[in-house]
Write a protein that binds this DNA or RNA. Structure first.
Length: 524
RNA sequence: GGCGCCGUAGCCAAGUGGCUAAGGCAGCGGAUUGCAAAUCCGCCAUCGUCGGUUCGACUCCGACCGGCGCCUCCA
């Protein structure tokens, strides 16, 4: 990746909403010019669904924008490959935990690749960090923050003065994981750092006997190992705020005696409209109402479909656009309808890209991406009136991103950008009598559009061509013939024949477009 | 019961104490076109309800109604 490195004094001021302080704060890094960012990744026990992709897409954009703005960013996403759910699932499927983890990790990586999430620098696996995890726990025990009980080790929340600070709750207000281990704990809110292995379960040797890490501890250990005791951004879904992130803070800050992360960023959760039933949460008094049809979060309990199945019906770009059209902290209404709308909206961009190529421009996808300098230079080449408009939209885009990564406004400015560009092409007659100066101006405009879309991670690669096969080539030459025959009919004013051809093709799913420079066709 | 979030046009979704309340999808009218498609132009919301603060609130405060998340596994 060509990262634009700039002197730190030119870094823009970015505001980030911090869950810890419940407000936006100006972004200040621990080390000048450098950003350490950690995102809680998946527990790899089943195929990932759309919910697992929200964080990666959002934080991919965050990283892109920070890099674009001049920071050097290290982004870590963990893979939790040891956990009760993995043990249960692998047993059910009659395979080893490691094999299950490998299979599901591959699935996860495939999905990230499909979405163009390519900025992750490290993906540590919990099982590769068992020694570090044990040392971490031992440190907590030595400092008196944790205690061993029957082969388990628990974190003692009463020893941590500010336990609950992330979610504004007291030790008394948390009920803790109950169940069979409850009687080993000193307080109900204490949580497991190390779990004793039952016979037949995967285990590692430890000072407390064979066992495995509890949930939470792997993130504390691995983020510390890879990003340091105090790093800049810790992210995850809103559902992880409690208990996961609260407990990470408790572990890391108790051991290290310094803040774990400066900024805690949480993305909103996917909502499935019309999904029935309550997901998780304690039943409230008044109780289960059968007419419970409102939007609910997508999660394992609602049986969200595997992401790969979703990809068989929807293009990754449409999914990305939908995610970025909503502010990252808001819930996202997800479903076939919104995805379809998103895909239709996407076409406005792609038609412009195609139009640009027809006018002799290069492929939009090949233009330099997220290059601030190139964008600024392109702007300087434009005539004053156009430059002003383009510049205003670019500024709107950048200011939106500076303000807590407001991709919804950024995307909106992109749609305005498309309109501006089409208008430029129309008003300067570029399809009829192109002037060299106007063509150059169009190049500059497209360069700025590329700069901005690249910053969001949109339009990284051309839509996957369905063709390439011999059949496709055949269809292509047949279409050339049909279009030629129709052109002759039109020239002879035989519009009945021309329209018959167009209507018949339409019924066959092919859309014709008569343009000043010829007739184009596309599949509907 | 505790902690927190939300309620903006037909649908989705930004945003703001006073200036035209972004953008998308859908719809309507127009330009363009042989007719379409695409493109462009225009139209389409007073911001859940009721009170309060204020010269002025959709934006701040309160109550109420409705919805959602977390408090147990969850991206």
């Amino acid at each position: 990746m060509a990262e634009t490195q700039q002197a730190s004094q030119t870094l823009p001021t970015i505001e980030i909403y911090n869950t810890l302080s419940h407000k936006k704060e100006s972004f200040q890094t621990v080390s000048p010019g450098k950003v350490g960012m950690y995102l809680c990744g998946p527990t790899v026990y089943k195929p990932s669904h759309i919910g697992h992709m929200v964080g990666p897409v959002i934080f991919d954009t965050v990283k892109r924008y920070l890099v674009y703005s001049g920071w050097h960013v290290t982004w870590v996403v963990n893979i939790t490959d040891v956990d009760d759910k993995l043990i249960a699932e692998s047993a059910a499927r009659g395979m080893s935990m490691a094999d299950l983890a490998r299979e599901m990790t591959t699935d996860y990586l495939d999905n990230l690749a499909a979405l163009g999430v390519d900025g992750i620098d490290e993906m540590p696996k919990a099982t590769d960090h068992i020694d570090g995890i044990i040392a971490f726990i031992q440190g907590l025990v030595d400092k008196g923050f944790a205690y061993a009980a029957d082969g388990d080790v628990y974190f003692d929340v009463t020893k941590d003065d500010d336990y609950g600070k992330l979610t504004n709750r007291t030790v008394e207000q948390t009920q803790g994981e109950g169940g069979s281990t409850a009687d080993r704990k000193r307080s109900p809110a204490d949580f497991a750092l190390w779990k004793q292995a039952k016979p037949g379960e995967p285990s590692w040797e430890s000072p407390w006997g064979p066992g495995r890490p509890g949930w939470h501890i792997e993130c504390s250990a691995m983020s510390g190992a890879l990003l340091g005791k105090h790093f800049d951004i810790h992210g995850g879904g809103l559902d992880l705020v409690f208990p996961h992130h609260e407990n990470e803070i408790a572990q890391s800050e108790s051991l290290h005696g310094c803040p774990m992360a400066t900024y805690w960023m949480h993305n909103g959760l996917m909502q499935a409209a019309g999904a029935a039933g309550k997901v998780g949460g304690r039943p409230r008094d008044g109780g289960a109402d059968p007419a419970d049809q409102a939007a609910t979060k997508i999660s394992k309990s609602t049986g969200a479909e595997p992401f790969k199945e979703l990809l068989s019906r929807h293009r990754p770009e449409a999914i990305k656009l939908l995610l970025l059209s909503t502010h990252y902290r808001s819930p996202i209404h997800f479903g076939e309808e919104p995805l379809g709308e998103s895909a239709r909206a996407l076409e406005a961009f792609e038609r412009l890209f195609a139009r640009y190529e027809r006018l002799g421009g290069p492929s939009f996808y090949g233009l330099p991406t997220r290059d601030r300098q190139a964008g600024t230079a392109a702007l300087a080449d434009l005539a004053a009136d156009v430059s002003e408009e383009v510049s205003a939209l670019r500024t709107r885009f950048l200011e939106a991103m500076d303000d807590d990564f407001n991709t919804a406004i950024a995307v909106a400015s992109l749609f305005d950008f498309v309109r501006l560009t089409n208008k430029f092409i129309d008003s300067h007659g570029l399809e009829k009598a192109p002037q060299p100066a106007d063509r150059q101006a169009l190049d500059a405009i497209m360069l700025v559009l590329r700069e901005l879309t690249g910053t969001l991670g949109l339009f990284l690669a051309p839509p996957v061509a369905t063709g390439g096969s011999a059949d496709e080539a055949l269809v292509g030459s047949l279409m050339d013939l049909v279009i030629e025959l129709r052109a002759r009919a039109r020239k002879a004013k035989d519009f009945a024949t021309a329209d018959l051809i167009r209507d018949s093709l339409g019924e066959a799913g092919i859309q014709l477009e008569d343009r000043p420079d010829g007739t184009g066709w596309s599949k509907k």
